[in-house]
Design a protein around this nucleic acid. Sequence first.
DNA 1: TCAGAGGTAATTTTT
DNA 2: TTACCTCTGA
Length: 794
Amino acid sequence: MMSHESPSEAPTAPHSNVHPRLLDNLNPEQLRAITLGHESALVLAGAGSGKTRVLTTRIAFLIQSGQATPGSILAVTFTNKAAKEMLTRLSAMMPINTRGMWVGTFHGLCNRLLRAHHRDANLPQTFQILDSADQQSAIKRLMKTLNIDDEKFKPKEMAWFINGAKDQGLRANMVEAKDEFTRRQVEFYQAYDEQCQREGVVDFAELLLRCQELLAKNPALLEHYRSRFKFILVDEFQDTNRLQYQWIQLLAGKDTAVFGVGDDDQSIYAFRGAEAANMRDFQRDFARGNVIKLEQNYRSQGNILDAANAVIANNKDRLGKNLWTDEGKGEPIRIYAASTDADEAQFVIDEVCALHREGKNLSAMALLYRSNAQSRVLEHTLFRAGVAYRVYGGLRFFERMEVKHALAYLRLAGNPADDGAFSRVVNFPPRGIGARSVEQVQAFAVRYGVSLYEAALNGIAQNTITGRSAAAIGTFLRVIEGLKSSGDARLSLAELVDEALEKSGMKSHYTAEREGADRLENLAELVTACAQFEETYEGEDSPLVGFLTHASLEAGDHEAAVNDDALQLMTVHAAKGLEFDHVFLGGLEEGLFPHENSLSDFAGVEEERRLMYVAITRARKRLYLSYAGQRMLHGQTRYGIVSRFLDEIPAPLCKFIVMPEKQAAYGGSGGGYSWGNNQAGARGSYGSAHNERRSVSGGGAGSYTGFNQTIPKDENAVEYGREGAPDVSRANFETAKKDALPFGIGQNVNHAKFGDGVVLAFEGRGTDARVQVKFRREGTKWLALQYAKLTVLA
DNA sequence: TCAGAGGTAATTTTT
DNA sequence: TTACCTCTGA
């Protein structure tokens, strides 16, 4: 194998200006991908294989070798973070300005195209972008005006339906409605699009769809961009949805080389429309066998990679790839079987503290979990232990209520037709405009087919809207009018926001409120953000439009200040693309990970397995995997069994962690270990120094073993391999519980009344045992095992 | 208009 | 359990 240290002799174009060090330290595959000529290719880039480096170096190479000008390159990513990273790395590599280059997210680039050609796209120049929450409220509002039963049609599902259709590139008239329910949804989709058009707003999916239509309907325009972009580079190709794929197809002319980079094994966003199958299509439509695999991993040590490879090998639907490293095996994977979720949390945090005492940074460690709800126990334990931590996820800056309120004033000033913004702040802060007054305005708006703003204006002028509320509405309108003229008078953005906060009464409202201090602080930050934005803003739209777009498209960071050393807590999804020296992955139980909602179909389980793959490959040096026999979920105690994914990791890679006391209890007994819980034991003296083991073997429904666990004191508490250590395998568990529960998760069963179904979960035991079954026709039900007559099917 | 009661649903998430 | 939503009564 050629060492990746050796300097490479790259085929560069004659008269090229390629920096002598640009192609240093690349492995042969990376080098090949980077120095490809003007041709399309698919790069299958495994986790930690230097994907971003390949992408950015290729751009630099194309420019330096004279094959491309910055203006002929289009690079598209999914997140702003990735786009920013690409630009940062590029400007570090090259002295040239990156401004002429089109590097951005799908949404950002589409926005740019739509603004530039707003007339052709049939949009106002100042169109605003709805984020998911805005879209949701727009849908609710429309459902109300159309008198749609929101019991039958949930706004959330409606949004899901519309976005799903748009993600596939389908307008309402293109959606096939097989049943009455779908027909109503399609009808609503149409009405929703009309409302958005009236109000001059577009949702996220619309940005892409409208852009696609813009190009498809304007041959001259399309030709212009096709001849301009000679090179298109697409990051995270496995995350593209159908529409994004169509968009790429459209934009790529005959002379465009499309460079797609992705990893089908890391496709974890099917639930939001991503189609990893696009990678297959891309091979067919563009790459035509021009596929380069990056399999050398520069992140994780051998055992970790072996575990990841072993797990993902169980997936059928793969393009195929195997990670390797020349860095050595490293440490074994540590596995801990906890009795309860609290026990699991305690173990994890004790290990974290131990590592921290050894001098490891907290920020180099991450606690990963499948679902956000799992963070609670961890946070609780961390708080008690006084460990600095940071949870990813949650509200971002521009999603905060007070910030959205403030922005709504600006939006209304920029576009009075924005009924969403109007509804949001017409009575915020409260100024005595109740539901009845708003209804009056609404009625007027519907009758004359005008915006709420206009309706309010005219309604008052014509005395159609009267009474106490008329005065209050008048006050509100004057605030907006004032902002409009301040905007026209070219007040700076920061001044404009400040005026909005002042005149709207938001400032005094939050000053008066007991818990308004944080909100005021955020609003002050908004003013600062405006000032900063305006300072560096170079776009062609007005700063106001630019800022509002920025707020919708980049809701702000989840990230903490870079400097503080805090333990990182996040979902596996959120961890994608990140890496940590030490990773703890908890909750490895059937029903949790893989999640029970994904168990009923094959594709679902495979996606969960890819998620597991992503989780494992986050770790550089040390990986801990843990699970708990008992866990509090939705206010109920659930008894789990160990995740199938854990079983898929070869035992020789693992080290099963056992407490000293437990070792004594089990040592040499040669198996007979089962886990799960004895309720009395578990509820008893958690954390007690004395270990109590209760075994009720052979007791039918009671054949569970419960134990308390204490904290590992030293490395000696750990045994290597499976020898002598308790067998925590799923197979062993199944044996132990067999007489108690005749069903395994995933078991096909038949019920006399409900028909065929599949077992999703179970809990309790003996006469309390209940099984959750997803029936093909009747949906998901919990059944008491004692009464439900279930037949086990093959 | 607002606070509090009561009902309900509860993966994963970027733009 | 808890967070979020809607409804109700003052």
